[in-house]
C-alpha cells in the first residue's frame, strides 16, 4: 500500500549542525530554511516532503502552469530520483544558489540544467527547445529565422571546438566571459531572507 521510498526520506530537521557543515548555510539559516520547507511541503499534502506540484505552486503561485525549467530544476534537486524532495535534498540544492557558494558549483549546476538529455554536452536542438519554451512561457513571438540566428550566434561564440555542441569546458569559458548567464544561479535574497534581521 505504501511507497517505501517515502519512508526512507528523512523527515523533519534531524541534524541542522551536520547540514550546516556540509552546505554554505549556518545553523540558523538551516533552521530558517526548514520553516520555508515546511510551508512549501504542506501546500498540497502535509507529509513533510515536497512533490512536483508543491514545488510548482511555490514557484509560480499556481499549479496550472507547465514549465520545462521548473521540471528540470525539480529533477536536479531530486537527487534520490523518487519524485519527492526531503529537506536535506532541498537544503543541499539551494546551497548552490547561495551568494557564498563556490562559482564552480554554480557552473556545474547550470550546465546540468541545460544538458536536457544528460549527455555531457548541450546540443543545438536542446538550446532551440529551451529558447522556444522560454518564448512560449513569456508569450513572446519570434520567427523561426530569428530564433535560428540567435542560436547560430550563440554557437559561434560558445562552440569553440566547432563540433556542434557545447561541452562542460566550453560552457565554463562562456559563462566566465558572460557572468550574467549565471545571474539566476545566485539568490541574493537567500542571504537576506535567512538573516536574523528578516522579519
Amino acid at each position: 500500500c505504501c511507497d517505501l521510498d517515502l519512508y526512507k526520506q528523512s523527515r523533519g530537521l534531524e541534524d541542522p549542525e551536520l547540514l550546516a557543515r556540509e552546505t554554505v548555510f549556518s545553523v540558523s539559516e538551516i533552521e530558517a530554511l526548514y520553516e520555508l520547507f515546511k510551508k512549501i511541503s504542506s501546500a498540497v499534502i502535509d507529509d513533510g516532503l515536497i512533490n512536483k506540484e508543491e514545488f510548482q505552486l511555490a514557484l509560480f503561485k499556481t499549479n496550472k502552469k507547465e514549465s520545462l525549467f521548473a521540471d528540470r530544476v525539480f529533477d536536479l534537486f531530486d537527487t534520490k530520483h523518487n519524485g519527492i524532495l526531503g529537506f536535506e535534498e532541498f537544503a543541499r540544492a539551494l546551497s548552490v544558489f547561495h551568494p557564498n557558494a563556490p562559482i564552480d558549483d554554480k557552473i556545474e549546476f547550470s550546465f546540468q540544467l541545460y544538458d536536457l538529455k544528460q549527455q555531457g554536452f548541450i546540443e543545438r536542438q536542446e538550446v532551440k527547445q529551451m529558447v522556444v519554451a522560454t518564448l512560449a512561457e513569456s508569450g513572446m513571438n519570434l520567427s523561426d529565422d530569428v530564433i535560428e540566428s540567435i542560436i547560430d550566434k550563440t554557437f559561434e561564440e560558445a562552440d569553440t571546438k566547432h563540433d556542434g555542441k557545447i561541452d562542460k569546458e566550453e560552457w565554463r569559458s562562456l559563462v566566465l566571459r558572460h557572468p550574467s548567464l549565471l545571474k539566476n544561479m545566485t539568490l541574493q535574497y537567500l542571504k537576506k531572507w535567512t538573516s536574523p534581521l528578516h522579519s
Binding site: I40, K61, V73, Y114, V127, V131, T134, I150, T154, L190
Partner: peptide, 26 residues
C-alpha cells in the same frame, strides 16, 4: 523583443521557471 545579438542562454535565463527567488515570496 529579443534582439538577434542576444545570447540564447541569456534569453533562456529569463524563464520564470529558473527564477527560484519566487520560492521565498509569499
Amino acid at each position: 523583443m529579443a534582439p538577434v545579438t542576444m545570447n540564447a542562454f541569456e534569453l533562456i535565463s529569463t524563464s520564470q521557471g529558473l527564477n527560484l527567488s519566487s520560492l521565498f515570496e509569499k
